[in-house]
Each structure stands twice: as structure tokens, then as C-alpha cells.
């Protein structure tokens, strides 16, 4: 059977739900953040697509642009609603975060690994090639926040792997955000 077309696109917008890190009393604050995702790929078989995804996750603390390689697999008959599964693996970029730097200190963010499996349903339009899509996903995003105090000029440098050169101290906060994601959008 001939494939209909090679290109596959999916654009969705939705929410990230999660629970914040342990607070002093052991409780967690709920967080709801906005997530946008677009996936561009090519069919490798009739029901499977590989490609890459690009998005924007607006957490309270940080804006992250996730960039990942992805896979989508579909189950169902042509022209009928389908179930699909997906997997995205890549990293998050913290490029939108401003680096703050002055005479005494520097602070910045670094995006790290992102992993997101998903399942969803697609409802094809009556006419044309587009379909409505609903996705439920899990998203694991790591990133780090750094705050470094610079050495006073003239203080004796010390050979160490622990501190980057020129720093007197460095505070590193490693974040791991685990979110449940609900998104809706279009497949085209």
C-alpha cells in the first residue's frame, strides 16, 4: 500500500501539572504551567513517524525550550479515531533566561535532559488530512540554576576541579520537574 504522504506535523498546546519539591513541612505545592509543543517528522512506515519536537514550557521558575528527537506510533483504521503513543527524548534549553552578571557575581541557568512518553487520541477531520489530537504525557525535565560569587581580584587562586576559575563560590541548584501533561492540538 502506498503511503499517503511523507511529512507529519503535530502542534499542541496544554498544561503541565506537577507537585513542587518537599517543603519544610513535607507538603508540596501544586503547580500548573503552560506547555506548547510542535512535532515535525516523517513517516517511516504507515503507522510510525520519527522526527523532532520543539516547544516552550513556561514554568514558574524558568522558561524552557525543549528540543527532542521523537517517535509517534498510531493504532487504528484510516479515517477513524486512532490511539497513538509517542516518545520524546532530548534536552531543554534555558536560552530564554537572562544571565545576570556584575562586578561581584554571575548567575545563570542551564537546561538539561528531557524525557517525555505520551499517549493520545486523534480524531480525523471529515475532509482533508488534518486531525484533532489530544495527548496525555509524562514529562521529566532537568535544569540547573547557578549563582557564582567571583573571586576578589588578587586573592590567591587555588587549583581545583570543583570551582570554575575565577569563582570564590558557586551555588548550584539542580531541579528535576516531573509533570503530567495534557495537550490538545492538530495533526496535519
Amino acid at each position: 500500500m502506498a503511503q499517503k504522504k511523507l511529512y507529519f506535523g503535530q502542534t499542541e498546546i496544554g498544561f503541565l501539572y506537577g507537585r513542587g519539591a518537599d517543603q519544610w513541612d513535607g507538603n508540596h505545592e501544586r503547580r500548573i504551567d503552560i506547555s506548547f509543543m510542535t512535532f515535525n517528522g516523517a513517516h517511516i512506515t504507515k503507522n510510525q513517524v520519527v522526527g523532532f519536537s520543539l516547544g516552550l514550557d513556561q514554568y514558574d521558575e524558568i522558561s524552557i525550550i525543549p528540543i527532542a528527537l521523537g517517535w509517534r506510533g498510531f493504532l487504528g483504521k484510516e479515517g477513524k479515531p486512532k490511539i497513538f503513543g509517542g516518545l520524546d527524548l532530548g534536552g531543554g534549553s534555558a536560552i530564554l533566561e537572562k544571565k545576570v552578571s556584575n562586578e561581584w557575581s554571575k548567575s545563570w541557568y542551564e537546561g538539561e535532559l528531557m524525557f517525555s512518553p505520551s499517549v493520545g487520541f486523534s480524531f480525523p477531520a471529515r475532509e482533508g488530512k488534518t486531525a484533532l489530537s489530544l495527548s496525555f504525557a509524562y514529562k521529566r525535565q532537568q535544569f540547573s540554576q547557578f549563582y557564582g560569587v567571583l573571586s576578589r581580584s588578587g586573592s590567591q587562586p587555588i587549583a581545583t576541579d570543583l570551582l570554575p576559575p575565577g569563582y570564590n563560590s558557586l551555588t548550584e541548584n539542580n531541579y528535576l520537574f516531573r509533570s503530567f501533561v495534557f495537550r490538545a492540538g492538530l495533526i496535519f
Binding site: P117, V119, Y138, N174, R178, F180
Partner: peptide
């Protein structure tokens, strides 16, 4: 789906680890 639900309901909690390195 099962795998996903396990992931979702077991561990949707954030983690923050801090380290402070100083001279």
C-alpha cells in the same frame, strides 16, 4: 498506557538538590 499511569501517579513530584561549593 499502564506504564504511563505508573509514571504519572507514582512520581509527579519535583526534586531540588542544592550544592554550595566555596573557597
Amino acid at each position: 498506557l499502564f506504564l504511563l499511569s505508573v509514571l504519572v501517579f507514582s512520581s509527579c513530584v519535583d526534586e531540588v538538590n542544592s550544592s554550595y561549593t566555596y573557597h
